[in-house]
Design a protein around this nucleic acid. Structure first.
Lengths: 338, 338
DNA sequence: CCATCGCGTGACAACGATGTCAATATTTCG
DNA sequence: CGAAATATTGACATCGTTGTCACGCGATGG
C-alpha cells in the first residue's frame, strides 16, 4: 500500500503545546509575545512550533477576535487599465503601512457583478470596502454602513448613500482644458467623451462646455461625440471627425482610453489637429501629448487613508476629497489651428 | 445624551433563528438551500434574515469547514508596472470563474518584504500562492508545499524548490530579436539589460548573445550595458551610448521599463538608431516601436489554472508552462544602419 | 510570621458557523 | 389501522484560536 498523499494537515496550536509540554493557553501566550511567560517555557514553545512548521491560523484568530479580517476590498474596473492599477497601487501601499491587505475584484463594468462582488467581500468581513463604482445606485449599501463597514467611493460619487469619497476635479480640469485650447486660437474643437451616464464624464463635459460658453464660442457644437466607450470606437470617431468639412482644429478626449484611440486615429497625419486628453499616461511625454493630469496614486492613497480612519474609529459625516488637476503642456495641445 | 454611535453589531445566525422561532441549525439549513426544510419554515427564516440584514460570516464558515479560505494570494512587483497589472488581471479573471478571490501585495522587489508577505498570506490560509518572485531563494517555502498550499511561480523559476511555474520564452524571444536586428544589417547593436541576477534578464541576455555568436558578430561587445534598473537610468544609458564613436546603430532593451527609458533618451533625434524592446506596451503601435511581444494576460491565466488544478486535488510533478513570444514589427526595429 | 503581591500557568468558555445524530411529526403502504 | 419509511427539526460537539478567571508559588513587607 503506497503512501499516496504526502500532504500533511497543518499543525494546530494544541499540537505545539503538547509537544512543548505546556497548556494550550501558555503556548498561545508564548507565540504572541505576551508578558508573564518564563523564558525557558517560551523557548520550548517556539522550538516546538518551528519543529512542526506551525503557522498561526488567522481565520480562527479573526473569528475569536471579533469576526473581522485584516482585509480591505477594492472593486474596480479591469486592472489592465492603468488608471485602475495606479489607484490600486496607491491603496495597497497605504494599507500595507497599517498591516492591512488588499483584495481586488474586477466588476467588468457590470452593476450586477459589482453587487455580487460587494456581497462576497462583506461575507469575508472586510474591514472596509473601496469602490470605483460601475453601478448607478448604491442605496443597497446603506444598511451595510450601519453595520460598521466603512465605504469609500473613488472617482465616482455615491448615489443614494452618504459615504466618504475621493474624486477628481473633473469640472475644473475640463474647463481649463477648454480654455487652453481656446487660448491657442481654436474654435472648432471636438469633444470626444465616454458614457455620459458616468458622473466623471458628465463633469468633464460640463467643464468643457462651460469654458466654451464663457468664451462665447459655439463653433464646436457640430463636433460633440459622446458615449464613445472603447479605444476602437474612439479611433473610428476621430477618423470620422477629420473627414468633416470644415474639420475640427482641435480635439479634447475625456479619458485615457479615448486619448489612446485618438492618437491611433491621428497616426500618420501630416498636419494633425491639436489634441488634449484628460488623464496622464505613460509615454505621453515621448508622444508629446498635452494632458489634464492628476495624481492617480494619491487618489488611491487618500481613499485608503479615509478608510483607515474609519476603521480606527473615526465617526462623523461623510467627507469628500477632491484631487486637483493640472495641465501638462507637451506640444499636442499647443498646436495652432491650421 | 445623544446616541453617539448608530453602528450596530452584525446579526448572527442565532439571532435570525430566534426571530424566526426556529433552532440555529434549521436556520442554517434554510439559508444554505439544504433539503428537508419545510417551505413555510424556509420563508420565515429568509424573511427574518432580510429583516435583520443578516449576512453569513464567511470567517466562521471557513473555520468550521476546514480552516482554508477562498482566497488566492499574489505577490508581485508594483501594479503600476503594466506587466504586473496585466498578469494580475489575467489571474483575477480566471480565479473568478471558480469563485476564488485574489489578494495582491507588492513586494517592492525586496526579498525580506516578500517573505513576510508570503507569511501573511499563509496565515490567512490562502488556497494557493502565486509569486512573481524578487527573492532568489525559495527554499523556505518547501515545508509549506507539504502542507497542501500549492505554489505557482510566474515569470521567474523557483529556486531550491520544485513547484509549478509559468515562464516566458526569454531565450527564444531575445534570440529572434538579435536575429531580427542582424537581418536588418546591424552589427553594432547595444544591449541594455536590467539586473542580471534576475533569471528572465539572464535568459534574454543569453538569447541575444547566442544570436550574435551564431552570426559571428562581435561588433556589439562595446555596447553591452547591464544592471540598468529603472527608466531614468535607461534614459541616461542610451544617451551615453549615443555619444560613443562609433555609436551603436541599433538598441535592444530587455524589458518594458528600459524600452520606455530608451524612447525618452532617443526623443527628438533626427536620425535615431533602430530600437527593439522586449515586452509589448500600450501605444507601441502609435510610436512605431518594434517589440518582442508575449501574452501577459495569458501568463496570469495559465498560472491561475495550474493553481486551480492543484487546489482541486491534482497531484504530480511540478509543471512548467512556457509562453511563446513573437516579434511585432512596427518600424523602429526595421530601420537600417546609418 | 502572616498577609499581600506579582508571576507563571492552566481550565474553561467563547467567537459564529456546520456536521452528526437523535427525536419527533408526517406520510406511505400493506 | 398499525408499522415502516420519510420528512422536519433540534441538541450538542466542533473548527483553532484568544479572553477570563482562578490557582499555586515564591518574594516582599509590616
Amino acid at each position: 500500500m503506497p503512501a499516496d498523499d504526502v500532504t500533511v494537515r497543518r499543525p494546530t496550536l494544541t499540537q505545539v503545546a503538547a509537544l512543548a509540554g505546556v497548556s494550550l493557553k501558555t503556548a498561545s501566550r508564548a507565540l504572541n509575545q505576551e508578558p508573564n511567560v518564563a523564558p525557558a517555557t517560551g523557548r520550548r514553545v517556539r522550538d516546538a512550533a518551528d519543529l512542526l512548521g506551525y503557522r498561526l491560523n488567522g481565520i480562527a484568530r479573526e473569528l475569536r477576535r471579533g469576526a473581522t479580517s485584516a482585509l480591505v476590498g477594492l472593486v474596480s474596473g479591469d486592472l489592465t487599465n492603468p488608471f485602475y492599477s495606479a489607484v490600486a497601487s496607491g491603496i495597497e501601499r497605504e494599507l500595507r503601512q497599517h498591516g492591512l491587505l488588499l483584495i481586488t475584484a474586477n466588476n467588468d463594468e457590470d452593476a450586477m457583478l459589482e453587487r455580487s462582488l460587494v456581497d462576497a467581500f462583506l461575507e469575508r468581513r472586510v474591514r472596509a470596502l473601496l469602490v470605483i463604482p460601475s453601478a448607478d445606485d448604491h442605496e443597497y449599501l446603506a444598511i451595510e454602513g450601519n453595520h460598521g463597514v466603512p465605504f469609500v467611493f473613488l472617482d465616482r460619487p455615491p448615489d443614494g448613500l452618504a459615504a466618504d469619497a475621493v474624486l477628481i476635479d473633473n469640472v475644473g480640469g475640463a474647463r481649463s482644458a477648454g480654455e487652453h485650447l481656446l487660448a491657442a486660437g481654436h474654435r472648432r474643437i471636438a469633444l470626444v467623451a465616454d458614457l455620459v451616464r458616468m458622473a466623471p464624464q458628465q463633469g468633464r463635459i460640463d467643464g468643457f462646455v462651460g469654458a466654451m460658453r464663457a468664451a462665447g464660442n459655439n463653433a464646436w457644437e457640430p463636433y460633440i461625440r459622446t458615449d464613445v466607450h472603447d479605444v476602437r470606437h474612439a479611433e473610428r470617431t476621430v477618423r470620422e471627425l477629420l473627414t468633416l468639412d470644415p474639420p475640427p482644429t482641435a480635439i479634447f478626449t475625456t479619458n485615457n482610453r479615448l486619448t489612446t484611440g485618438a492618437l491611433r486615429g491621428m497616426r500618420g497625419l501630416a498636419d494633425p489637429p491639436a489634441l488634449l486628453g484628460f488623464d496622464d499616461f505613460d509615454l505621453a511625454d515621448v508622444l508629446g501629448t498635452t494632458v489634464v493630469a492628476h495624481d492617480m496614486t494619491a487618489l488611491g492613497r487618500e481613499a485608503a487613508r479615509l478608510a483607515y480612519e474609519r476603521i480606527s474609529g473615526h465617526t462623523g459625516p461623510a467627507r469628500t476629497i477632491v484631487i486637483s488637476t493640472s495641465i501638462i503642456a507637451r506640444g499636442s495641445g499647443e498646436r495652432p489651428p491650421r
